[in-house]
């Protein structure tokens, strides 16, 4: 198991947002989180790289382990952790810099590469994100000039540059057109050979297409977790069935 979560509770101040979540995610698999808005799936995703730490009043109970090491143990360096666990957000958020500098940024501030090596790693990351062919002749153009789909792949390249082991994706294709969405989905399929991927999506067909395992959340609880094919053909829980057949949510 790459990620093991046991009895996780999460609070925003007095409000309990996640209740007793226990789940195990395998290495080199794609795990999808589905559920209606406000069910806690994004909150849970952000507990996997401690992105919730910056929210005042946020509090965590239970344990989240990656390769057996507890993220919330005292002494865990959140910055190092986030290098290991990269994240891509719903809205692409490139820095107001060139395409090259966006990808090079993490490598530079972490002192991971410079000069020719830096250029090679930027190229490798852009290739891994399936963007290289489209931008290789204009690496020093502003990232903001790229299309929405390209910007999102640039953000994936930026996340991959620092060589994470886990990639968290929060609705990575929800703002993209069908073709750009398909590119991201194909990319996810290719990337799982090298990364453990966790994706939050509102699009059930997308969860069905890209993931190996699916977790259904409802009102801060993990209702059902299992192999994606069986979750979408014969879920065990009535709540899951009602949600994925569009009867609520």
């Amino acid at each position: 198991m790459k990620i093991t979560v046991e009895h996780l509770n999460f609070y925003y101040g007095a409000k309990k947002a996640l209740t007793d979540i226990s789940i195990e995610m395998k290495a080199n698999e794609v795990t999808a989180f589905i559920g209606p808005s406000g069910c806690g799936k994004s909150t849970f995703l952000r507990t996997l790289n401690r992105m919730n730490d910056i929210i005042p009043g946020a509090r965590v109970e239970g344990s989240v382990k990656i390769d057996g090491a507890d993220l919330y143990a005292s002494g865990t360096d959140a910055v190092l952790l986030r290098r290991k666990v990269g994240m891509v957000f719903q809205k692409s958020n490139p820095f107001p810099k060139s395409i090259f500098e966006n990808v090079a940024y993490g490598l530079r501030i972490n002192g991971m590469a410079k000069g020719r090596e830096l250029a090679e790693q930027v190229e490798a990351s852009l290739k891994a994100a399936a963007l290289w062919e489209e931008v290789k002749d204009r690496l020093h153009d502003p990232a903001m000039a790229l299309s929405g789909g390209q910007q999102q792949r640039l953000c994936i390249a930026r996340a991959l540059a620092v060589r994470p082991e886990v990639l968290l994706m929060d609705e990575p294709a929800s703002a993209l057109d069908p073709i750009a969405t398909q590119r991201i989905e194909e990319l996810i399929y290719v990337l799982k050979k090298d990364y453990t991927i966790v994706i939050v999506t509102h699009n059930m067909q997308q969860a069905a297409r890209v993931s190996d395992a699916t977790a259904f959340f409802w009102m801060g609880k993990l209702i059902e977790f299992g192999p994606t094919p069986s979750m979408f053909t014969g879920p065990r829980e009535k709540l899951t069935e009602d949600y994925i057949t569009g009867r609520f949510g």
Binding site: A208, T240, I244, T245
Partner: peptide, 9 residues
Amino acid sequence: HQPMAIDLR
């Protein structure tokens, strides 16, 4: 409709 679960079945 790309049905799922009971609807698909």
